[in-house]
């Protein structure tokens, strides 16, 4: 059984000028121990999906439809207090900027101990020993001496390691990692990702890895979901999606990554920009930029369709598509 199931999730933001649909009909599963990468442009709804799963959508955003199930039980409609017990204990979260995610006034040890004693049946003394263990796990040198240091006494990369220890310390089954390396130096990114991947594998923790860095996805994820304008446009195994993307948008995305093995005169780019939430066109949301658009794309909205090894929300993979569709 899947660890996490997201079914037809819809998130709305009521505003003065009408309701904006930030996520529309988003569905995917994550199996135990699996790493699902989520990619897309800024504003595509990647982080929003993560926030909805941990139950911390920023008001006035709200889940307006669909379900989120953790081990078969619905968690999207739980009261705050019950959801609080799940956060940290069952679903951990890692945020983007390690410089701002740690409370500057408390030692990292205190933050770790507080998190563990909140969720696990252990006392402060035992929690302290475990905290030292976690700091060693995430690669903090001299963990025993540094546990009583404050966040500002660590570098950015070290702080993100502390954040990862905090997210993992109550041993959740799922980690929602929202751009965990974006704010780090490039030289540190690979180390932190490798460490995160190893730890997740050791503990059997599943991960939803939100990023716009395809390199990170290719290296870490088992499967990838590509998001566009609040919807999933393609989802499938990482190898397939990187090499043979089916949806024209994912293909554009992959073509815009500079290849290392050959010279190219010009990088491919996708013309135009993603529509604002208030101006998503009728039919396929990509129809304003798609090089292979045809009649049906302006009328009907595509569901996720079988496109060989992946599933793509594109009419090219429906019956009766124009000739030469299956690339």
């Amino acid at each position: 059984m899947s660890l996490l199931q997201v079914k037809n999730l819809r998130v709305e933001f009521p505003t003065r000028r009408g309701t904006l649909v930030a996520l529309d009909d988003v569905s995917f599963d994550i199996a135990p121990g699996e790493v699902l990468g989520v990619v897309g442009e800024s504003g595509a709804g990647k982080s929003m999906t993560g926030a909805a799963i941990i139950g911390l959508l920023e008001p006035p955003g709200r889940i307006a439809g669909g379900q989120i199930l953790l081990e078969g039980k619905r968690i999207d409609n739980l009261p705050y207090e019950q959801m609080r017990r799940i956060r940290g204990r069952q679903i951990g979260a890692i945020f983007q900027d390690p410089l701002t995610t740690l409370n500057p006034l408390y030692t990292i040890g205190r933050q770790l101990i507080e998190t563990m004693t909140t969720h696990l049946p252990i006392g402060p003394g035992e929690a302290r020993e475990k905290a030292i263990g976690w700091l060693e796990h995430v690669g903090i040198p001299a963990a025993r001496e540094r546990i009583d240091s404050y966040p500002h006494e660590f570098s950015g990369g070290m702080r993100q390691r502390v954040v990862i220890a905090l997210a993992l310390c109550a041993e959740p089954k799922l980690i929602v990692a929202d751009e965990p390396t974006t704010a780090l130096d490039v030289s540190i990114q690979a180390q932190v990702i490798a460490m995160l991947k190893t730890l997740a594998r050791e503990k059997g923790t599943a991960m939803m890895l939100v990023t716009h860095d395809m390199g990170v996805i290719a290296e870490t994820a088992d499967r990838v979901a590509v998001m566009y304008a609040g919807r999933i446009s393609e989802i499938g195994p990482v190898r397939e999606l990187v090499r043979h993307a089916r949806h024209p948008y994912s293909k554009g995305l992959m073509d815009s990554i500079p290849p290392l093995d050959r010279r190219v005169e010009r990088l491919q780019q996708i013309d135009g920009s993603m529509p604002r939430l208030s101006a998503i066109p009728k039919g396929c949301p990509y129809n304003t930029r798609c090089p292979r658009v045809f009649d049906r794309c302006y009328v009907e909205r595509p569901e996720l369709l079988d496109a060989g090894t992946t599933r793509a929300a594109c009419w090219l993979y429906a019956e009766g598509a124009p000739q030469g569709a299956s690339v």
Binding site: L56, R84, T100, T101, P104, T115
Partner: peptide, 26 residues
């Protein structure tokens, strides 16, 4: 509104600790 409060909530800390421990002290 700060990130560390969001992160404290994401770790499932109790409201009491979030408001009076983490937020008020800051």
């Amino acid at each position: 509104r700060s990130d560390y409060i969001k992160f404290a909530r994401a770790r499932g800390l109790s409201n009491r600790s979030v408001y009076f421990g983490h937020a008020l002290k800051n």
